[in-house]
Amino acid sequence: MSEAPTLKRTGLPLPITIIGAIVLVFICLFPFMWMFGSSIKTLPELYTVPPIWWPETPTFGNYYKVLFESNIPRYFLNSVIISVGSTVLALILAIFASYGFARFNFRGKPVLQSFVLVGQLLPTAAIIVPLFITLRVLGLVNTFWGLILVYMIVTLPLSVWMLTSYFKAIPVELEEAAIIDGASRIGILFRITLPLSTPGIVAVVVYAFVTTWNEFVFALCFATDSSVKTLPIGLAEFSTEFNTDWGAVMAASVVMTLPIALLFFSMQRLFVGGLTAGATKG
């Protein structure tokens, strides 16, 4: 949508909008402010009653500990590799599968479609051990590929499901015209369907990336070697057996949160652009 709106909408009165926005921002940001505040406190300041809002002498010692005296930077890299890998893989498989489900009729389609979704319902705790055994048979324990595969199957079902509905919403006529012109199915998918489904693609990418980046339970059980551990595990490592170092935990939390927040701020234009592009398809 361009700067000049095509028409004036009636909207919420501006003051209400502003108040609403402030409340929204406060609710969403407050824990992060407290997290940041705690991360620059010294240990005694963290445990005073009543709590203090802002430390008298802010310290970056906790950050130093996180960035230079821990494995966090390494885990950060691991998280990036694993998240990107599994997102890309899930996206590719989901595009093809969704296109198949959205545009074709074949025997057993409803069954297969439910099969995909059912995978999402499995209790995590129940599939950890069998999944681990599968990975071991494939020789993928403690490898990037192992975790990428695991996260791919975690995110794939919903990705397929989301994209299928987006593809279905695109008028078939556009594709039929191209078929008459002799384009191949793959060609149509990439040249016509995909560009029209940007919001869907963006949504899938965001969903898959965030899910992978944040996942804790699988990583805890499958990544036992520091060369493949991810950030949430790094956070857990700060709590040693008898000593929860809250300042460092909060600093590590900030380190984990900041990049993904920045990513979103920088992607915001693209993201919203993608969303509004979807609006024009009618």
Binding site: I128, V129, F132, I133, R136, V141, L220, C221, F222, T224, D225, S226, I233, A236, E237, S239, T240, E241
Partner: peptide, 21 residues
């Protein structure tokens, strides 16, 4: 040497023991 953390250690040990690896 592989360093473990107490958070979730029982789960990790069990997974490893059960998996045969």
């Amino acid at each position: 040497l592989e360093i473990t953390t107490s958070d979730g250690l029982p789960q990790r040990v069990l997974t490893a023991l059960q998996s045969g690896a």
